[in-house]
């Protein structure tokens, strides 16, 4: 996935400016930066979620398989590029099974067998199957926070997206639940291209192959995670990762 000169606004306020960036296939790309630097806005531009906010505007291109997602219907773009949000947001009135099946049903899949298989596979991929296999008909909101987040990951995976975007997926979770999700991210990159926004630098260092550092709506530096953390080229990056601000 290739991002080309993306800028985004909330009303008159410019949130990110002229960002160009590559995300490698089947790898994990991290985006870090202090609060308000525009990292969430950037990731929301990657599956056209940004424009669902009233008065929000985007300019630039995001190429997936060589084609600009802004030339395609937003609905089909979001089926190819899934997203997991900061706060787990399962559908509370649906069972665990129905939560995972929701996206497939939107795509018109009605066959029980197909749904069964997809739910099983997605829950396994999200490392949740063993914990919920006996309670698939329970409400999604009966799970713990970490389980809910993995349920949301399973829900996003069920439609077999090419890319999975994660917007601070662990910020509402405790350290144990966080560790589980990080392990999961590591496993998922075999099959998916992952982009993860995090304000937690250690997390980026642990899971991401490449990391981008953003500040005040601009992309400051991007590189192999190890290099970025050990030998940052920019002074700004260095002061951020050494904890001098942010």
């Amino acid at each position: 996935m290739h991002v080309d000169k993306i800028s985004a606004w909330y009303g008159p306020k410019l949130a990110i400016q002229d960002i160009s960036l590559d995300f490698e296939e089947h790898s994990v790309s991290g985006i870090i930066g202090p609060s308000g630097c525009g990292k969430s806005t950037l990731i929301r531009c990657l599956n056209r979620m940004h424009e669902t906010i009233p008065k929000a505007k985007v300019e630039g291109q995001v190429l997936l398989d060589g084609q600009d997602i802004y030339d395609q219907p937003a609905v089909s773009v979001r089926r190819r590029i899934g997203m997991v949000f900061q706060k787990p947001n399962p559908f509370p009135t649906m069972s665990i099974y129905d939560n995972v099946a929701a996206g497939l049903r939107l795509n018109g899949v009605r066959e029980r067998k197909k749904l069964d298989v997809a739910v099983l596979e997605s829950l396994k991929q999200a490392a949740l199957w063993d914990e919920v296999k006996d309670s698939l008909d329970k409400s999604g909101s009966s799970l713990s926070g970490g389980q809910q987040q993995r349920l949301c990951i399973a829900r996003a995976l069920a439609v077999r997206p090419e890319v999975l975007l994660m917007d601070e997926p662990c910020s509402a979770l405790d350290p144990i639940a966080t560790a589980k999700i990080e392990d999961l991210i590591f496993d998922l990159k075999k099959d998916y291209t992952l982009v993860i926004v995090t304000h937690n630098m250690q997390q980026a260092a642990r899971v991401a192959e490449t990391t981008a550092f953003m500040y005040l709506g601009k992309l400051i530096e991007v590189g192999r995670t190890r290099e970025l953390f050990e030998r940052p080229r920019e002074a700004l990056t260095e002061s951020y990762i050494t904890g001098r601000f942010g």
Binding site: V75, N89, P90, A102, V159
Partner: peptide, 27 residues
């Protein structure tokens, strides 16, 4: 209904009506 519910449906590729049905009316 919290916006996070609408976003959950939208991010699965729901249309406006599907988002309303799945994320809003059910909730």
């Amino acid at each position: 209904v919290p916006d996070s519910q609408r976003e959950a449906a939208l991010s699965l590729g729901a249309t406006r009506w599907e988002t309303t049905r799945l994320g809003v009316l059910r909730y």
